[in-house]
Computed example of a mutant assay.
Amino acid sequence: MSVNREVHPVELVDDAGRSIGTCSVAEAHTLPGRHHRAYSVLLLGPDGVLLQRRAGVKTRFPLRWSNTTCGHPAPGGDLPDEAATRLAEEMGLTGIPLREVGEFDYRAEDAATNRVEDEHDHVLVGVVDTAPAPTPDPSEVAEWRWVPLAELRADLAARPDEYTPWLGGVLRLAAQAAADTH
């Protein structure tokens, strides 16, 4: 069953990532936009990274390839728990420990939908020994694939409009975290 996430509250933040209020998802993404907290999850496995192609009904950057899942924590919510819940809802994957590896800010306007992303994005990574096959919610995800990191980086550089504008920042933090653990 599809849920209207546009009415959910998001946490507005200042330039340092400190909470300064709330508004709805829809309001935060309506031009000129409101700077708010978000999270991006990336799963790393033996076959590379798990990407999803966003469903065509998405209000921002539909049909673009992106990280495994993303969303907005409820104001005052527990970030890792909410990210794990969203991973289960969107991709049908459970029991994968996630750890936060960093944060970054970005702003990107989507001319196709006349919406904007203005986010303070927390990046969470999950590492798996075997590449699970997701069972995604079709209202959220059009398709998915595991991609070797080097191949993804090359394709992202060659065809950036095929990907969400935040994916580069997510990959940078995830790759740095992976390198730091080896």
Score class of each variant (00 low, 15 high):
Gly17Ile: 01
Arg18Ile: 00
Ile20Gly: 00
Ser24Ala: 08
Val25Asp: 05
Val25Gly: 01
Ala26Leu: 12
Ala26Ile: 02
His29Phe: 05
His29Thr: 03
Thr30Asp: 14
Pro32His: 03
His35Pro: 01
His35Ala: 13
His35Phe: 15
Ala38Glu: 14
Tyr39Ser: 09
Tyr39Leu: 11
Tyr39Cys: 12
Leu42Cys: 09
Leu43Trp: 09
Val49Arg: 00
Leu50Glu: 10
Gln52Cys: 08
Arg53His: 03
Lys58Ile: 01
Phe61His: 04
Ser66His: 02
Thr68Phe: 05
Thr68Trp: 04
Cys70Asp: 09
His72Gly: 02
His72Ser: 11
Ala74Gln: 10
Ala74His: 08
Gly77Val: 01
Leu79Lys: 02
Leu79Asn: 07
Asp81Ser: 10
Glu82Ala: 06
Ala83Pro: 05
Ala83Cys: 05
Arg86Gly: 04
Leu87Thr: 00
Leu87Trp: 06
Glu89Asp: 14
Glu89Ala: 13
Met91Pro: 01
Leu93Val: 04
Leu93Arg: 00
Leu93Asp: 06
Thr94Phe: 08
Thr94Lys: 10
Leu98Gly: 00
Leu98Ile: 05
Arg99Pro: 02
Arg99Asp: 15
Val101Ala: 03
Gly102Phe: 03
Gly102Glu: 07
Phe104Cys: 01
Asp105His: 14
Arg107Ile: 07
Ala108Tyr: 08
Ala108Met: 06
Glu109Met: 13
Glu109Ser: 14
Asp110Ala: 10
Asp110Gly: 07
Ala111Pro: 03
Ala112Asn: 03
Asn114Glu: 15
Val116Tyr: 12
Val116Arg: 14
Glu119Leu: 14
His120Ala: 15
Asp121Pro: 02
Val123Thr: 07
Gly126Gln: 15
Val127Met: 14
Val128Tyr: 11
Thr130Glu: 15
Pro132Val: 01
Ala133Arg: 02
Pro136Ile: 00
Asp137Cys: 08
Glu140His: 07
Glu140Gln: 12
Ala142Val: 04
Trp144Tyr: 09
Arg145Tyr: 10
